[in-house]
Design a protein around this nucleic acid. Structure first.
Lengths: 231, 231
DNA sequence: CGAGCGGTTGAGGCATGTCAAGAGTTGTGG
DNA sequence: CCACAACTCTTGACATGCCTCAACCGCTCG
């Protein structure tokens, strides 16, 4: 692991409140690894031996069943993933693959579990992180059950604009086929939906999104802080 | 609060490992309340001031958006709910209503947050509980995205049979209209689907489910421990 | 330059939702 | 105890959202 990476990791919510000694101990037993693009680094069902931290690149979490597959999340630096599985010492519920060349830190699950018994501040951080993850998945489930695909797309586009600082124009952070899967629809349907939404305040050119009428888009998306955040 | 209720609460995963002193302190600041059937005790968006514990009766967690509504979960004794919101000191993401006459314990969120900073074993229990809740919602999201409604119904029926000890016959624990919403479909569609499944190993008579051909039902449901548990 | 892949578009089909009506059940008040 | 209202559940007819399949374009990369 490169020494200049430690401060970045330390800044994560999960690690910023623990003692320096705990942090150093935990990271001392960890190691970094570089993966090429498209590598399936975690297969659902495998035992969860490591907490993963994305340092560079990006990672797709996806799930499979009966020959079907869907994207559950995309992670970018610096963030952790599959914390819950490592804590429960249970099999991964999702698979993970790199979307590009990606650098990952692997923290042994057993060290992690031992650490939050020793460092209360770390335990509190883990609690807060898990609660945040939980709420995030609940939001996703609400979106799936309460909105139709057009509304999900509109909300997503609006939310991305807000994440880009309220910009009227931005580029999609992921491929459209992946976005479709994330939003619970087929690529064809996303393509058609984006087309339809041009009557509702957006213009799409390749990966570029331009919001031409924010009010109209908002009326359709009906953003709700209990689904779309920010929390 | 009745003294005979304390041991039951104490037996919950969330509370069974903390010190007796911590447990007594926490429950001393709590109080019990009885609600009639159909009362909306929590409204989504309200600040989360209390952890709730169902002692008797049953509670439906549901979500609303844009005039629509869907069931997210049904809770029975003895279990806790909306732990995550109380921890984050954030608004509830879901509403809750009683399905029958229900007795609830209310634990002040601030006392809860203070307690897991003082009692490490309690902090560990909270971590485990949250991780379990998180995984449970992820399973639900996987089921929604990867299975069609017929497969969700079949899985549900099979799982209920297993929960009933592998019984070939059992009664549905909830009304069908609620079940439909929980499974992400309309009551009409559930009704038709149950009818169709009579060619796939079940027979339904009112709330009574009889599994006539477990193998056939299993072939359709394709139960998967990474979606249907048990974990 | 050709293969492969992502994206788009169209045609058609299936799954699911909507609307409406009626049977059965439950709860309530006279 | 009965009458009535309200509600669940079911079924049918119909509409539509979304998926599937297929073809094609444009781009990237070997």
């Amino acid at each position: 692991m490169r020494p200049e990476e430690l401060p970045e990791i330390r800044r994560l919510h999960l690690f910023c409140d623990m003692t320096q000694a705990s942090f150093e101990t935990l990271l001392a037993s960890s190691y970094a690894q570089n993966f090429p693009q498209g590598l399936e680094m975690i297969r659902q069902g495998d035992p969860a031996d490591f907490l993963h931290i994305v340092l560079e690149g990006s990672v797709e979490l996806f799930a499979q069943w009966s020959g079907r597959e869907c994207t559950m999340a995309v992670l970018r630096p610096v963030s952790t993933f599959i914390l819950a599985a490592t804590i429960r010492d249970a099999p991964y519920l999702m698979s993970a693959r790199t979307l590009e060349r990606t650098r990952i830190i692997l923290v042994p699950a057993s060290d992690l579990r031992a650490m939050f018994r020793r460092d209360t501040e770390f335990a509190v951080s883990v609690i807060n992180e898990l609660a945040a993850c939980y709420r995030s998945v609940v939001r996703g489930a609400k979106s799936l059950k309460l909105r139709n695909s057009r509304e999900r797309v509109a909300s997503y586009l609006l939310r991305q604009s807000i994440l880009a600082g309220g910009a009227a124009s931005y580029t999609l952070p992921v491929e459209k086929r992946l976005l479709a899967s994330y939003l619970g629809m087929t690529p064809e349907n996303l393509s058609r939906t984006l087309r339809m939404l041009e009557d509702h305040g957006i213009k799409v050119d390749g990966a570029r999104v331009i919001i031409t009428d924010r009010e109209k888009l908002t009326a359709l998306a009906q953003p709700d802080r209990l689904i779309d955040g920010p929390d």
